[in-house]
Amino acid sequence: MLAFLLRRLANAVAVMLTVALIAFVIFRFVGDPVEMMLNEQATQAQRDALRERLGLNASPAMQFARFVTNAIQGDFGISYRNQQDVFTLIAERFPATLELVLVATILSLALGIPFGVVTAIRRNSVLAQALQLVSIVGISLPSFALGILLILVFSVQLGWLPGFGRGEVVDLGFWSTGLLTASGRKALVLPSITLALFQITLVMRLVRAEMLETLRTDFIKFARARGLPDRVVHFRHALRNCLMPVITVTGMQIGNLIAFALITETVFQWPGTGLLFIQAVTFVDIPVMAAYLVIVSFIFVALNTVVDMLYAVVDPRLRMQGSGGGGHGG
């Protein structure tokens, strides 16, 4: 188990270094940062001073080493656009994105898993057929279209829910949350549905496919032969076996959601990191872009590592190395 942990950790570090290198290369070679930070009237002396201050005269290897050291300490430099510390800038925006993503994830699991089970065990029922049909819409409708549609119906025409912003936010010092106020919760509804719809259908289809596969296995047949009722066979035995891929996909998707919430955030003017990134792109604010890249990658890598650990919790065969056993699902 310890060897497994260390291996996973070494893996994660290697991935992060690669990402840092890419971010560094972007930062270094997409235009000259000195040119972007100073205006056209700046003297050569000013340029040289800034160049020295930014450490751009050192060798690329040294610069990369400094970039990594600084990044580890949370120092990604100063935003070109509003001259703020990049890390603080992202940290301020992060709670908004994470709340949106977590609500969307919970929604996708809470609806996707039962829908998947129902469509698998009552394959020919009207409900299952309807869910399958809706899932095709969910999987093919782009999120910006869905977001605009929801705004049109629920904000503009019915006026039930706000169509933009985050509502009132309670500041807890290290975290600003919209979950504690009524307007904050209301503001969450439409963006989280927009973000979750694809996930719900993804989880549902995944669970359905896995359930159908699992229900054909010998151990399910044997569980029936032991006289266990369908409820137990379906929900305890079969569903448990389907959880591995669900954990994998959910873990990956949380990373994806954080990274790609930017479309939903743009549609709903949600003050999260995605919106920040879009603004950074518009202004070629390279430190923000580089930091965003590194931080999102870090979240990806961290989630993947956590997912690998969770496997061991769900599947006893992975807990003890070298004791044999086949792949899951037969």
Binding site: T217, D218, F219, K221, F222, A223, A225, R226, G227, L228, H237, R240, N241, V314, D315, P316, R317, G325, G326, H328, G330
Partner: peptide, 18 residues
């Protein structure tokens, strides 16, 4: 299970792995 027990061919796959 109560009045009729069953034994299947492949003991590798008959038992729930988890």
């Amino acid at each position: 299970g109560r009045r009729i027990g069953a034994i299947f061919q492949d003991p590798l796959t008959s038992l729930h792995p988890l």
